[in-house]
Design a protein around this nucleic acid. Structure first.
Length: 488
RNA sequence: GGCGGCAUGGCCAAGUGGACUAAGGCAGCGGAUUGCAAAUCCGUUAUCCAGGGUUCGAAUCCCUGUGCCGCCUCCA
């Protein structure tokens, strides 16, 4: 079985072959940290987290680079807007770097909650100004960039294959261009490499062309090449960045190096909210911090994984509630499994189950190998759970060996690869069991009382205890061997 | 105007030429289990937007139509 990846560059699914055997370099466009992350970030970064996790599962040594954009990303228009960071910093009356620090922390907080692994390198644009200046100089030297009024632009007319990623042709762009013609440019599609900074600018640096700041596209070229090499394996990002951002990255990098840039381009699709596109300018974006108030981060992760990364998803309370119930079902199995493990022993039936799990593994990996089909991979987990639940329902003794083997499977595939099952899955309070010690004892006391009522067939009173606990979010389950309880 | 994508059961969503007599989840219905529940299990609910074509064979390829959506301005 081999991994296949849909490559935007070639518009087809290709067998993945890394440049260096056993190693993978991947660069994913990170956030511009001028606001709290929203559910669009969740889809994007969960998707690429899965890519990294699965590549590691396959045994690759992965170097995952995801940048933090902290300068150069303009509002409105790639050449004429305000710097997003500066604009927001002025609004909040803080230093730009203070703002960056604040939202960067917010970003990591939410990504950690979603159980996304941290990137191996998280380079910041402001930390790579000299490298960016060098790249601009190199492009000027090669005759593909020109200085104009202390700004520098890339001359797209000189590049014959400009547009190869997005499938656009320069001639077609001219008629429909909505950008106002910038008189500094030779061609309307030329993009800024370096921008002259006026006196009002806070973030600015000296350069051979005067005081200025880097163009947005520049940082990704520079930082990916610095940490992954001039040609590297995978470049990922949101589909809305195919043009112009990624197209420009390719133009800059390949012109400077005279060799291919990223080999596989992966693009995740967008999130809509109640059927409408979610955009910062539309003001309908849902921050993760708000979403987390209603739904657990793992529910959101599960919701994202239920659809292929290249398909759009629609965020709505109803959809998230459905996802929540579905995930709970999976968790119920893990809970039952782990409870049963505590009281079991022996290794009877282990060989049979090893064979079964081998088959599930093949199904799971088969799904993931087809361009990271997480929806199908999840279906495999649900199928397994059905079989496990049946096993646990039978009165027969199930050996510890079998239960442990199944648990290992969930840890490996539901845990390490998909990141939805954790060490604590199935526990009544994953956050901190000891802080609920008294509550725990009180519940146990109530359950004991209720058991006595049941023994004397006082059903009404027994049910009342159960109903009251249910109202408080404690679910009682009368099982054959014992009475179990959990937090809803 | 240019480029690209999507249309699968009540909802969400895999599948993109032959083991599809179409995964999986949510919701519903019937049953098992239970003192009643909960949890779980079993059964049940589709011929794949419409029309035409290619093929021995199509949800899957081609054409036409309809309807959505994205990009071409910042956005993950």
């Amino acid at each position: 079985m081999t991994l296949k990846i849909y490559n935007t560059l070639t518009r087809q699914k290709e067998i993945f072959v890394p440049i260096e055997d056993g190693r993978v370099g991947i660069y994913v466009c990170g956030p511009t940290v001028y606001d709290h992350p929203h559910i669009g970030h969740a889809k994007s970064y969960v998707s690429f987290d899965i890519v990294v996790r699965y590549l590691r599962h396959l045994g690759y040594k992965v170097r995952y680079v995801q940048n933090i954009t902290d300068v150069g990303h303009l509002t409105d228009n790639a050449d004429a807007g305000e710097d997003k960071i500066e604009k927001r910093a002025k609004l909040e009356k803080v230093e730009p770097m203070e703002l960056v620090e604040m939202y960067m922390r917010s970003y990591y907080e939410d990504m950690d909650a979603l159980n996304n692994l941290r990137a191996d390198i998280s380079p910041r644009a402001t930390g790579h100004i000299p490298e960016q200046i060098d790249l601009v100089s190199a492009l000027i030297d090669k005759g593909f960039a020109y200085e104009s009024n202390q700004s520098v632009y890339f001359n797209v007319s000189k590049l014959k294959d400009y547009g190869k990623l997005s499938g656009r042709k320069l001639e077609e762009q001219e008629s429909g261009a909505r950008i106002e013609i910038n008189p500094e440019k030779k061609h309307p599609a030329d993009f800024a490499l370096w921008k002259k900074a006026g006196p009002e600018h806070i973030m600015k640096w000296n350069s051979p062309w005067g005081v200025g700041f880097p163009g947005w596209h520049l940082e990704c070229s520079v930082m990916s090449m610095k940490y992954l090499g001039e040609t590297f394996d995978i470049h990922g990002g949101g589909i809305e960045n195919v043009f112009p951002h990624h197209e420009c990255e390719i133009a800059q990098s390949e012109t400077a190096n005279e060799r291919p840039f990223a080999r596989y381009w992966m693009h995740n699709n967008m999130v809509t909210v109640d059927g409408q596109k979610m955009g910062k300018s539309l003001g309908n974006f849902v921050t993760l911090k708000d979403a987390f108030k209603k739904f657990s981060p793992l529910t959101i992760r599960f919701f994202v994984l239920n659809t292929h990364y290249s398909s759009p998803i629609n965020y709505s309370d109803g959809a998230l509630e459905a996802a929540d119930t579905g995930l709970e079902r999976l968790f119920n199995t893990i809970r039952s499994l782990r409870e049963r493990m505590e009281s079991s022993s022996g290794t009877e039936g282990l060989e049979t189950w090893k064979a079964k799990l081998e088959s599930y593994k093949n199904d799971f990996e088969g799904a993931m190998n087809e361009d990271f089909n997480t929806a199908e991979a999840l279906a495999v987990l649900f199928n397994l759970s059905k079989e496990v639940n049946s096993l646990l329902n039978k009165e027969d003794v199930v050996s510890k060996g079998v239960l442990t083997e199944i648990d290992s499977f969930y840890r490996a595939y539901g845990g390490n690869v998909l990141g939805i099952i954790t060490e604590n899955t199935g526990q009544y309070d994953p956050e901190g069991a000891d802080t609920y010690k008294i509550e725990d004892d009180l519940i146990k006391a109530l359950i004991e009382t209720r058991n006595e009522l049941r023994a004397s067939k006082q059903w009404e009173l027994a049910d009342k205890v159960r109903d009251r606990l249910s109202e408080l979010g404690i679910i009682i389950e009368d099982k054959k061997e014992k009475v179990a309880w959990r937090k809803k």
